[in-house]
């Protein structure tokens, strides 16, 4: 029987778990609000730059960074999946079962959010930012 993790390890593990489950969703939400807000409002002002940066570069960053965060969440979800598929002996069955279900949900949703972010990124390659 393995030794039980201490409170700090539990806290870190718990945060990692929630990052796996919600990371992609939050990254996508931030991505969407950023790209929409920046695009619509900058173009409404008749500009195609924000300060010194071209609008396209800013939107590009708002695509790439959330995509990377989502990949991270996907990896964390994969970790939870692995750790719950062969639990060590003596661990309570219910948390493991619940963790495993959450891992399935997390892997799928991170993949899904990554797909959405990437599809939005493809549009950035095709369309000029302020074309109406």
């Amino acid at each position: 029987m393995s030794t039980h993790p201490g409170p700090r390890a539990r806290l870190t593990g718990g945060l990692l778990f929630w990052y796996a489950v919600l990371g992609g969703a939050i990254a996508w939400a931030v991505h969407l609000l950023a790209v929409w807000g920046v695009d619509e409002l900058t173009c409404a002002g008749g500009r195609e730059r924000i300060g010194a940066l071209p609008l396209r570069a800013v939107i590009g960053a708002a695509v790439v960074l959330p995509a990377l965060a989502t990949v991270g969440a996907l990896l964390a979800a994969a970790l939870v999946w692995r750790r719950t598929s062969h639990p060590p002996e003596g661990v309570d069955e219910r948390p493991v079962g619940r963790g495993r279900m959450a891992a399935v949900v997390a892997i799928w949703s991170n993949l899904l959010f990554l797909t959405i972010i990437v599809l939005g990124g493809i549009a950035l390659l095709v369309l000029p930012p302020c074309l109406r």
């Binding site: 939400a29 959405i116 599809l119 939005g120 549009a123 950035l124 369309l127 109406r132």
Partner: peptide
Amino acid sequence: IISFGVWVHHMFATGLPRLSYSFFSAA
């Protein structure tokens, strides 16, 4: 969750930048 990121598809005829539309179209 995704249902919160598709609202602009109700506004696809309002003449916002087409790139903005695409993000909502993707979702």
